[in-house]
Design a protein around this nucleic acid. Structure first.
Lengths: 341, 341
DNA sequence: CCGTGGTGTGTTAGCGGTAACGGTGGCCCG
DNA sequence: CGGGCCACCGTTACCGCTAACACACCACGG
């Protein structure tokens, strides 16, 4: 029992015994049996994770983070895919969870905003945590980054390089993060005294395909932009492809930046300047938030942490540079500041 | 107890009681508590999964499969990444597992062939299962597809389309699957009465970058190939990129096919004709094989299944077509047979 | 008629932890 | 100086399941 108290950081253990126990643990190479623990404690053992077809890179990072947290907590992750866009498909996939008695559900994007899913969970009384929503509703469990600030910083980066005409490719309109990123872009432009009307904005849907179409439109304009800021890496990669097909060099003729820092960003050439989301950490946070809520529900009370905003990071790589005909050597020299990877 | 027997398919239960129990289970919406189960059965609870930087798409699929199997078996997956190529880094990462007392380890490629890892596990007496080796050593636990047959079939597809000069980009030479795929390519060519010397072969390393270099070399030849068979999708995607930069249309001017069917294959444009590996199923098989081995070790005896070869599948998409100047309408018409996705 | 050997089912004793409660001492207070 | 309170640690009784065994029952052969 005392060992249990030490391991779980329980109160009322003398310092001397505590170190003695820890020493013994070390010597015996003891590690607690998670099965026994969760059996005895009657804790949540099944946590659902409903995923839709996000980028594979996103999903793998997310799973890594969620798995690490799940193992620490001794609970199992139950995966369920929900590829469908239709409300009934989403509801059906969610019901799957309800029937297999998962005790809480994690919703990575884009499902974090899927109304049918949330309605179904609400009805079943199963708590959930949304991940990476741009603008989560109040009093909901959620983990995210500051999309507004991130998009704003990225725009500032392009402005600092000397770009004045920037093309922006928006994300899927039914995800609030799209709107937040756009808001960040607009704010940075206006902050620099530029009229948003002088910028080129096209609608995209976070897919590679939509990125192709949007980029074609941007480059077909009479006064094409010297830089393109796509709302995610897939669309940025598409933009690079289109640029190449048109014989434009990136970044000499056209700068292209993305968002998310998925593996696609470093797979293509040139590697993308982008914003990194700490995906694995977000997944861990999400699971912990959910477990805390479940504990609280079970009567333990405890802190009422509901929202967690993690830090993003600007990742400067080779796809962004000064606009053509800019001051110094027109090419690879400038803006090699910050973190290059 | 009788319930336990029914649930676990135990022997010596009368048929009438069996259905009665099942009915009760259904009515009560009962589901066994996996924590209690693994506690009582004293089964393996921690299975390691040592991954290196495979394509993110591969990893996510793999994790999905492994997780599903792990949950069914009631065991936890312990992830550990091992990005390093150096022997000591790999040994170190492996020792991490030994110290945290995982009971078995799953090795997806390319770590399935990493000698330091295997040596370390051997020394610690921890069983492991290799996934997707091309030519696994005898008496080792492994799950794979028939790389030889798959590569051979893909080559045949190109030959059937009319290609006579095919460029082949080999995979990383320290993975046996590279050699097997190459062997399959050679066999199909020779089988068609073509001299392998008339084909163009370049060395690649399964990376996008290496694919660019290899493709440049192939296309710089005096007599460039009309089709390129890359040993994985990343290199095929690179080939598509190079082709586009050179103003070549895929597949009208150049057919390009890959291997693996990772998400990259459908992300880029045109979508890649490739060979699908049932990644999730392979992960499931791997875990089950490992658990069977552990049970057997624990004295239960049982079947001695050691190797499992799963089916691959040819996926025909838009990146392959007849060579330029071929018989019918030079382009999209031919070879729309088989499964198009 | 009684062993003997199945076949089906119930009993017992854990698996390795933790909640809840029961003891100890020591300290302070009345 | 006795009682109350607290800090500290040990006991007990489970958590939900399964291995191992005990038991009833039947068929069969000698």
């Amino acid at each position: 029992m005392t060992v249990s108290r030490v391991v779980n950081g329980g109160a009322n253990v003398r310092e001397t015994t505590r170190v003695a126990v820890l020493a013994a643990i070390e010597k015996l190479n003891y590690s607690p049996n998670s099965a026994a623990r969760s059996l005895a404690a009657g804790e949540a053992t099944q946590i659902g994770l409903l995923y839709s077809n996000p980028s594979a890179a996103y999903l793998s990072q997310f799973l890594i983070g969620a798995l690490a947290a799940a193992r620490k907590a001794g609970c199992h992750l139950v995966l369920e895919s929900c590829e469908g866009e239709r409300a009934d498909e989403q509801a059906e996939a969610t019901r799957q969870f309800v029937s297999t008695s998962v005790e809480g559900v994690i919703l990575p994007p884009p499902l974090s905003e899927a109304a049918p899913v949330r309605a179904e969970l609400e009805a079943a009384g199963i708590p959930w945590v949304s991940v990476a929503m741009g603008l989560p509703p109040a009093r909901s469990l959620n983990v995210r980054i500051d999309d507004f600030a991130a998009a704003s910083a990225m725009t500032q980066h392009l402005l600092d390089l000397g770009h004045r005409k920037i093309g922006f490719i928006r994300g899927n309109p039914n995800q609030t993060s799209s709107a937040e990123r756009y808001r960040g872009f607009v704010a940075a432009c206006e902050n620099a005294g530029l009229d948003i009307k002088s910028m080129a904005v096209e609608q995209g849907y976070f897919t590679f395909r939509s990125g192709i179409v949007a980029t074609e439109r941007l480059l077909d304009r009479d006064d094409p932009p010297t830089a393109i800021f796509a709302s995610n890496d897939d669309m940025a990669a598409a933009a690079v492809g289109v640029a190449h097909r048109r014989g434009l060099h990136v970044p000499q003729d056209l700068s292209i930046v993305g968002f998310d820092d998925t593996s696609l960003a470093t797979t293509i050439w040139p590697e993308l300047t982008t914003v990194r989301q700490p995906i694995a950490a977000m997944a861990e946070s999400a699971l912990n938030l959910l477990l805390a809520r479940l504990r609280e529900r079970r009567g333990a009370g405890g802190g009422k942490l509901e929202e967690q905003v993690l830090d993003h990071e600007m990742i400067l790589r080779e796809s962004s540079g000064p606009p053509p005909g800019a001051a110094p050597a027109p090419g690879k020299t400038a803006a090699k500041a910050a973190k290059r990877r």
